[in-house]
């Protein structure tokens, strides 16, 4: 057997790269996000197409907000994937919350693949307008 054949024949190579598992990592998608700040709250909107209320996950732990989502695998019966730009989406993005956010009163909604998280500010952090009376 020639040297070239030895190199191309997987049975003959004693290199242990053959033992690498089929998938060594998952490709995570970092959803594109808009953040807006108002006097009362922060509003976070993330594009996560393929996500609904049952597959989205919003968690807060020690001032860290994590948004996650996994789309359903799409494999129609008898169809063959002839052109591919994306795999099954695994979304994840992590944000550090500012001090003034109240982590107990978060609200999250999903509509048309857009996740919206409302992060209200603590009452003491909100600006207060004081009525000025004539003296």
């Amino acid at each position: 057997m020639s040297e070239l054949q030895k190199m191309t024949d997987p049975q003959e190579s004693n290199c242990d790269v053959q033992q690498i598992p089929e998938t060594t990592h998952q490709i995570m998608t970092r959803p594109r996000t808009d953040i807006r700040e108002t006097d009362q709250a922060y509003l976070l909107q993330a594009d996560m197409p393929g996500i609904d209320e049952s597959s989205a996950e919003v968690t807060v732990e020690k001032k860290v907000l994590t948004i996650r989502g996994t789309t359903r695998p799409f494999a129609p019966e008898g169809f063959e994937n002839v052109y591919k730009e994306s795999d099954q989406r695994l979304y994840e993005r992590i944000f550090r919350l500012p001090e003034e956010v109240d982590p107990t009163s978060l609200e999250a909604t999903v509509k048309n693949g857009v996740l919206t998280v409302t992060l209200p500010k603590r009452r003491e952090a909100q600006p207060v307008r004081i009525q000025v009376n004539a003296g």
């Binding site: 594109r32 953040i35 108002t38 922060y42």
Partner: peptide, 13 residues
Amino acid sequence: PEQKDGENLKQER
């Protein structure tokens, strides 16, 4: 989306 009040901190979409 309509901007009523507030300030955009991040715009990626």
